[in-house]
Amino acid sequence: MLGQPISDTNTLRGNRVYASKRFYQVAGLLLVLGAAILAWRLLAGPAQVWEPGTMPISPEMEDKFGVRFSFVAVTAQGGMVELRYRVIDAGKAANFGHYTETAPMLISEDTGKVVDVTIMGLHNHRVEPGRTYYVLYRNTEKAIQSHRPVTIAVGDLKLEHVVAW
């Protein structure tokens, strides 16, 4: 500092003091904010973990429609959604998907967006017990997202918390 005016040194120190105060203020605010969010998360309980491929069973749907759903998958670069199901009771399943009240629809549990029944199912009215069949849907507005929860709705029955592949 030889040769440097005292007033300059003071000015420099003054800036440091101001910068340090601002740093503590910002850091303190962030710490309080972080602590608040952490407390909120802890109080809210653990985050829901969605395991892709999760497929609950609906005894009501099986009894009414004669089918057991096996998976929902997002496919074709996200442009389509596939629903697959196994026939348990061929008699009851014969009309599955063919009428409004037997047509499955998919509902995103994140957004409530719906993909409705499509005409690209692969079966006619003759289905065999134990065989698996599919329905392809338009993934309207990318409604169904991979690894996210979906509800399968058929008529007035719902199967919740299916997780799409």
């Binding site: 740093f23 910002v26 850091a27 962030l30 710490l31 904010l33 972080g34 969010i37 952490l38 998360r41 985050a47 829901q48 973990v49 969605w50 395991e51 892709p52 690894h147």
Partner: peptide, 21 residues
């Protein structure tokens, strides 16, 4: 750097795990 670390910690706290496998 300190501010950045605090921000990252907050983001982690906000996001948590999304359950993606």
């Amino acid at each position: 750097l300190t501010i950045l670390v605090l921000l990252v910690m907050i983001l982690v706290a906000v996001n948590g795990s999304n359950g993606v496998v």
